[in-house]
């Protein structure tokens, strides 16, 4: 792949890096990444991946921009209130980097459509705000053999892990969504806007490192932080052979929508 003059200059700070270089940037430019949810997590992920030159970015979200979103969903601006999030985000991406091809899915992903949406992408980013979607994305990616980045935020907390086929999945730790009402929802608990940015940029870095094939991904470990005291920790875990979806004798062989459709928990999310 030959970079043109403008690309050499635009991506110069990547090319300088010994672990990226021209070869790594070429992989980024050839990358296809689907971001599910264009909210608090999806916004920084989309911005950084667009800036980095990811060749194809898919955006899946059925919502429209709400005034309360602007406190953290930095890809949307005040005049965008009321517009479809995927269209608002697509415009910003085009303004940042015309190299990027954006494909929008103005719909909520569910068991019926997710497999078709993810199949053409190299990597999937979970930027959703509810357990049902998180388990659905996990199951779809495990069954479809797609790597993905899980992310969840609530109040001052964030957590993220990366799934790569053959390694532990989200269900290896969290077998099933908690019952509705067992954990506070976003509307009850709130979210510090910058926490969304912190976690989203970690996810974006995971995507880029996956594309260039360098470094150690957050595989078989989960990164948890608390931004109130600004403490980070990491918990290692292994693929569970009894995991219902990626285990040796899986019970989940087809996708279905989970009952819980409410906003996140300690282990859920608040997109």
């Amino acid at each position: 792949m030959e970079l043109n003059e403008a690309q050499v200059e635009r991506y110069s700070r990547h090319i300088i890096l010994g672990d990226v270089g021209v070869e790594g940037q070429a992989k980024i430019l050839a990358g296809k990444v689907l971001i599910i949810g264009t909210g608090g997590l999806g916004a920084p992920v989309a911005l950084y991946l667009a800036a980095a030159g990811v060749g194809t970015i898919g955006l899946a979200d059925g919502d429209v921009v709400d005034l309360s979103n602007l406190q953290r969903q930095v890809i949307h601006f005040t005049p965008d209130v009321g517009r479809a999030k995927v269209l608002s985000a697509k415009e910003k991406i085009a303004a940042i980097n015309p190299d990027v091809n954006v494909i929008t899915y103005q719909t909520r992903v569910d068991a019926s459509n997710i497999a078709g949406i993810i199949k053409d992408y190299d990597f999937v980013v979970d930027g959703t705000d509810n357990f049902a979607a998180k388990f659905l994305i996990n199951d779809a990616c495990v069954l479809g053999g797609k790597p993905f980045s899980h992310g969840g935020i609530l109040r001052f907390d964030g957590q993220t892990l990366t799934y790569v086929p053959g390694h532990a999945c989200y269900r290896c730790i969290f077998k099933a969504p908690p019952p509705p009402g067992a954990v506070p929802t976003c509307s009850q608990a709130g979210i510090l806007g910058a926490v969304a940015g912190m976690l989203g940029t970690i996810q974006a870095a995971e995507v880029l490192r996956y594309l260039i094939g360098r470094g150690k991904l957050l595989v078989d470990r989960i990164l948890i932080f608390n931004a109130l005291d600004m403490k980070f920790r990491e918990v290692g875990f292994k693929r569970d052979p009894h995991c219902p979806v990626c285990g040796d004798q899986p019970s989940i062989k087809a996708l279905s929508d989970e009952r819980s459709a409410v906003c996140g928990t300690k282990f859920g999310g608040c997109g």
Partner: peptide
Amino acid sequence: CPLNFVKTKVELS
């Protein structure tokens, strides 16, 4: 600098 280094890397690639 550092674009000269970037371009050197591009040529080396």
